[in-house]
Write a protein that binds this DNA or RNA. Structure first.
Length: 449
RNA sequence: GUGGGUAUAGCUCAGCUGGUAGAGCGCCGCCUUGUGGUGGCGGAUGUCGCGGGUUCGAGUCCCGUUACUCACCCCA
């Protein structure tokens, strides 16, 4: 038992300095979401299994809750941990519809669980940040632009590598295929989605064999799927393919509006593209779809995504259409922390360590600390009245930038910046550290050098 | 779910065809009797993942097992 504890794969835990980064990212996301008027909610972590079921089947990746004391006859509680935030949100809307104002705008940042084999960027417990807007019976299209724009702003404000929003529109694809005379639209979309893994000619062959396309139709599908631009020029490119369909036109208009709306305003490191091969979630997305990728981390696949659901939730009488997008906080952050792209400036909140001269005068050190805290400066008093060298080292290990040496009656105290070695006389009632030292900061790789 | 890899000090790892365990970093002490980092000297640390087998002898070979890890599958 005295042996080491084995880590549990897929259930990542952060050390304090890394947690500084995660907390700041969550705080920054929340600030942006709130800036756009989205209210925060938190849902329970369990849902009835039948609600988590996918097409009537219980997914094997769902963690089921079971009481230890349950008898052999009892199977389980009928409850499972949620595997995303959309399903709980849909249920929340139905359950609380009478108390909500629609269109309801909310954000939610919570863990979710999936019994997958863990890999880089794929965990069994992970944190996600979702923003959605949901309406009653109808939800005007401009909310698609609005909610996507919120996530663009939110990710643009994060200290992460550049991200790319790749948009598509299901009406556009569906209308194109329909206008083309393709019978099995869903099969065609599913096949086109394999373009990542298979060469174009193999995909074309599959379109013929699996999706009932003629070679000519397959060729057109590929031409559509390879359109990828950062402006609205895709509209002309699609029209040149010579397919006519009302739904296609609607999709083109919508996608153009989303791309234009999200690209507007100028961003630090977010790019926006129309990418006509993005499929995502065949069963429920009905209009706008998006996948988000992070530069240098394409191997993680998407770090976020979402879209429009015409039926996010329904109670049989009322349908609640929704549009939203989610960002994988754990999926993107943990690899960035592991690679040292992001780190926390220190593992403790303390900006100052107040040294203790000897145990008889510990009260004097505590008084200094109280004076600093009264002005909002996080600090701690040294654990032991060791030699000052040891106390300085204690601070250094923890990344605490300042050590305060209390004075004695008639002698002023002094504060030392242990990075520069500079030491000055100071009064705990007025001294203030530089703003950037007041709290632990997120340090990016460039800033480190 | 399928296949591969790995498991030795706090961390990263070495240990050739079997002979009773090593390095670097870190940690502790002293040089340095109240101001750290650099330098010098010294020191501590391991049921070599677990169980079994072969052998005079196993970290090393064999079998099993567990965990971790990578890839595939899947991915709302």
């Amino acid at each position: 038992m005295a042996n080491k504890i084995a880590p549990l794969g897929g259930f990542p835990e952060l050390l304090p300095a890394a947690r500084v980064v995660e907390r700041e990212v969550v705080a920054s996301l929340s600030r942006t979401f709130e800036l756009h008027g989205f209210a925060n909610i938190e849902t329970r972590v369990v849902e009835p299994l039948d609600r988590l079921a996918k097409g009537g089947e219980i997914d094997k990746e769902i963690y089921v809750l079971r009481r230890l004391q349950a008898g052999d006859g009892d199977s389980d509680s009928g409850l499972g941990l949620h595997f995303d935030l959309t399903v709980p949100f849909a249920r929340y809307v139905l359950e609380h519809a009478g108390h909500l104002e629609f269109p309801f705008r909310r954000f939610q940042i919570q863990p979710a669980w999936r019994g997958e084999r863990p890999q880089e960027g794929r965990y069994r417990q992970f944190t996600q940040a979702d923003v959605d807007i949901v309406g009653v019976d109808v939800l005007p299209f401009h909310h698609d632009v609005e909610v996507m724009r919120v996530m663009v702003d939110a990710l643009d404000a994060l200290p992460i590598p550049p991200v790319s929003f790749q948009f598509n529109n299901r009406k556009l694809i569906q209308g194109f295929y329909r206008g083309l005379g393709l019978a099995d639209v869903t099969a065609a979309i599913r096949t086109i989605d394999k373009l990542d893994k298979l060469p174009a000619d193999r995909v074309a062959a599959l379109l013929v064999s699996d999706a009932g396309a003629t070679p000519e139709q397959a060729q057109r599908c590929l031409e559509l799927a390879t359109i990828r631009v950062s402006d609205t020029s895709f509209v002309e490119q699609v029209r040149k393919l010579g397919v006519e369909d009302d739904l296609l036109e609607e999709g083109l208009t919508e996608l153009a509006a989303v791309v234009e709306g999200c690209a507007a305003g100028g961003h630090r490191h977010v790019t926006v593209e129309a990418n006509l091969r993005i499929a995502r979630g065949l069963d429920y997305y009905t209009g706008t779809v998006v996948e988000i990728f992070m530069e240098g981390y394409e191997r993680l696949k998407s770090v976020g995504g979402g879209g429009r659901y015409d039926a996010l939730a329904s109670d049989g009488r009322t349908t609640y259409p929704g549009v939203g997008v989610s960002f994988g906080v754990s999926r993107s952050l943990i690899p960035l922390l592991a690679d040292g792209v992001l780190s926390g400036s220190r593992a403790v909140p303390s900006a100052v360590l107040v040294a203790v001269v000897d145990e008889e005068t510990r009260d004097a050190s505590t008084a200094v600390a109280d004076a600093l805290r009264a002005r909002g400066i996080p600090c701690e008093v040294a654990a032991n009245a060791q030699k000052f060298g040891k106390q300085i080292r204690y601070a250094e290990r923890r990344g605490i930038p300042f050590v305060w040496f209390p004075g004695s009656p008639g002698v002023a105290g002094e504060v030392k910046d242990i990075r520069s070695g500079e030491q000055v006389a100071a009064d705990p009632a007025t001294w203030t550290p530089p703003t950037e030292d007041l709290r632990p900061q997120v340090v990016t790789e460039e800033k480190k050098q």
